[in-house]
């Protein structure tokens, strides 16, 4: 019998003991499905772009959407395997409300052998009133699956 690798769990890449950009931003894992992942970014004064209004900068939203997109691709592939972001387009539909946690959910809607296509939506409390939409493509590495670093 062949041992199947355990299914990819995006929560394992965040949280206690982890490091890197997403952890530095203070983002949290929220939920995932077979082809999607949702992350949350609690409001943080360090990440604002406007001292007068306290509005969150757009860059941190790109960051959580890029990470959620990468996790969606790993989920759809069923394994943690390397990929590289080819491009991301973000439409900023409205500013996030100061003080609100931003949620970002991305779905991998198409995988070819070499490329993954992702779409996503960010909101700050009401999924029907989004703050941003994203679309991106990712180059897939077809080398061996990676193990989650300890």
């Amino acid at each position: 019998m062949i041992d199947a690798p355990p299914p990819f769990n995006p929560a394992s890449l965040l949280g206690r003991g982890r490091s890197g950009h997403i952890v530095a931003l203070g983002a949290d894992y929220v939920a995932h499905g077979e082809d999607w992942c949702e992350l949350a970014l609690p409001y943080d004064r360090r990440l604002i772009s406007d001292l007068a209004t306290g509005v969150l900068a757009s860059g941190p939203i790109v960051s959580i959407m890029d990470s959620a997109a990468g996790m969606a691709i790993c989920l759809k592939r069923g394994k943690l395997q390397a990929h590289a972001t080819l491009d991301l387009r973000i439409d900023y539909l409205r500013p996030a409300r100061p003080g609100q946690t931003v949620h970002g959910r991305c779905r991998c809607y198409r995988l070819t052998r070499r490329v993954g296509f992702v779409e996503g939506v960010a909101h700050d409390g009401d999924p029907d009133d989004p703050i941003a939409r994203v679309a991106g493509s990712f180059l897939l590495d077809n080398g061996p699956a990676l193990s989650v670093p300890a």
Partner: peptide
């Protein structure tokens, strides 16, 4: 270290922020 995405590479979001 807070700019890192995949091991040894800058996070795409940090580059986008710049």
């Amino acid at each position: 270290e807070g700019l890192i995405g995949a091991p040894g590479r800058l996070h795409g979001g940090a580059v986008a922020g710049l």
